[in-house]
C-alpha cells in the first residue's frame, strides 16, 4: 500500500496581470486583470513506505507546489492526494505529525534561541516522549556533530551548522515521511556529505520515506534509487536511475589511447569530440553501434594501447531532457509502477 499517492493532481494560481512600463505600473494600481497559471498540471505518483525518491525538475516545474500540497498547506485545484491515509489539506494538523520538512532556503529553527531550545520547543509541539526525545537527540548529535553548537543562538550558526540543526529538528518526532526541499543548497562539500550521510542513515535505520527535491544531481546519484522528473507541471519520467541512463543516455564516449599516431576517426555514428596528444575521445550512439563494433573498427585502423568507456553524466542526461523536452525523445517512457 503506497504511503504517498496522488492522482491527476493539479494546482492553478491566479495572479494579477502586470502591464509593461511606468504607465503600466500606474495602470495596474487601478485596474485588475487576472491570469491563471497551472503550477502543477497533472501529477500522478505513488510511493511505497521506505522509498527514497529524487523529485527533480527545472526551476518553476512545480516541485515546491507539489510538496506544499503534500504538507497540506496548499489546497489542490483538482485531483486526489493521500499521505499516510490522510487527505493533507483536510487534516492539516494530523498530517503534520506524520511528516518532517526541511527547506534549504528557510529555517524552521527559532532564530533568537539556542539550538537546544528550538529542539525543546519542537518536543513540546509534537509531544515527543522524553526518553524518545533524548534517544533521538543523542543519535542525531552523533551523526551530525551537533554538540559543538548546541548552545549557540541559531542566528550565529554557519549555514552548514544551521542545516544540520534543521535536519535534526525535522526528525525529532520520528516522522514517517520527510520532504527535503533543496537541503544541500549553498553547502560546502564536507557539509553536503554529512547531510547525505544523515539522510541515508535515517532512511535505512528507520525506514523513513524521503522525497528529495534538489538541483544537485550528486545528491540524487548518491541517495536515490528512483527519480521522478517533472517539467511544466507534469511527470515526464518516473523510474530508476539506470533506466533513465538507458533510455535517455543514448551517447557514450570511447576513450582511446593511441600507441602510434593515427589520423582518421570518421567511424559510423561516431563523433570525434576531443583529441589531446595520443588521447582520443569518440562519442558514439549506442543504439546504432555497439562499443565492441566501434573498438574493432578503431583497432583495424590504428594501433592502440588502451580503451575505456565513459558513461554519460546524469547531469548531461537531465540537461538534455530539459532542453529538448520529453516528447522529442525516441520512445516516451511509460511510468514504472
Amino acid at each position: 500500500m503506497p504511503i504517498i499517492e496522488t492522482r491527476n493532481l493539479r494546482k492553478v494560481f491566479r495572479s494579477v496581470k502586470r502591464y509593461p512600463g511606468l504607465g503600466g505600473a500606474v495602470r495596474s494600481l487601478f485596474t485588475r486583470e487576472y491570469v491563471d497559471k497551472a503550477a502543477v498540471e497533472d501529477v500522478t505518483l505513488a510511493m511505497e513506505p521506505g522509498e527514497l525518491v529524487g523529485y527533480i525538475g527545472p526551476n518553476g516545474a512545480g516541485k515546491s507546489t507539489t510538496i506544499k500540497m503534500l504538507t497540506g498547506i496548499l489546497v489542490p485545484t483538482s485531483g486526489e492526494i493521500h499521505v499516510a491515509g490522510l487527505v493533507p489539506h483536510e487534516k492539516r494538523k494530523e498530517n503534520a505529525r506524520n511528516i518532517g520538512v526541511v527547506f534549504g532556503q528557510r529555517s524552521q529553527l527559532y532564530w533568537d534561541l539556542p539550538l537546544q531550545e528550538s529542539f525543546e520547543l519542537l518536543r513540546a509541539i509534537y509531544a515527543v516522549p522524553r526518553d524518545r526525545y533524548r534517544a533521538n537527540l543523542a543519535r542525531f548529535s552523533e551523526i551530525l556533530a551537533l554538540d559543538e553548537f548546541m548552545e549557540t543562538p541559531v542566528r550565529q550558526l554557519s549555514l552548514g551548522q544551521r542545516m544540520r540543526g534543521d535536519f535534526a529538528a525535522a526528525m525529532l518526532h520520528d516522522p514517517q515521511i520527510v520532504y527535503l526541499d533543496e537541503p544541500t543548497i549553498g553547502l560546502d562539500v564536507v557539509a553536503k556529505e554529512a547531510i547525505r550521510e544523515f539522510i541515508a542513515q535515517i532512511n535505512e535505520e528507520r525506514g523513513t520515506t524521503v522525497i528529495l527535491t534538489t538541483h544537485d544531481l550528486a545528491d540524487v546519484e548518491r541517495l536515490c534509487n528512483r527519480i521522478i522528473l517533472i517539467d511544466d507541471g507534469r511527470v515526464v519520467f518516473d523510474g530508476g536511475i539506470e533506466r533513465l541512463r538507458n533510455e535517455y543516455g543514448t551517447h557514450r564516449t570511447l576513450v582511446v589511447t593511441l600507441a602510434e599516431n593515427c589520423e582518421s576517426f570518421d567511424f559510423p555514428h561516431t563523433e570525434l569530440v576531443e583529441r589531446e596528444g595520443n588521447l582520443v575521445h569518440l562519442k558514439f550512439d549506442r543504439r546504432r553501434i555497439t562499443a565492441e563494433q566501434l573498438i574493432r573498427a578503431v583497432t583495424e585502423r590504428c594501433t592502440i594501447s588502451d580503451v575505456s568507456i565513459v558513461e554519460p553524466e546524469l547531469e548531461d542526461i537531465i540537461r538534455r531532457i530539459y532542453l529538448e523536452g520529453y516528447q522529442h525523445q525516441a520512445q516516451a517512457p511509460a511510468p514504472s509502477s
Binding site: K68, G72, A96, V101, Q108, I125
Partner: peptide, 13 residues
C-alpha cells in the same frame, strides 16, 4: 520572509 508556511506545517494552531 516567506517563513509563515512552516508554522502551518506543524501540528499547532
Amino acid at each position: 520572509e516567506g517563513t509563515i508556511a512552516t508554522d502551518f506545517m506543524k501540528p499547532i494552531s
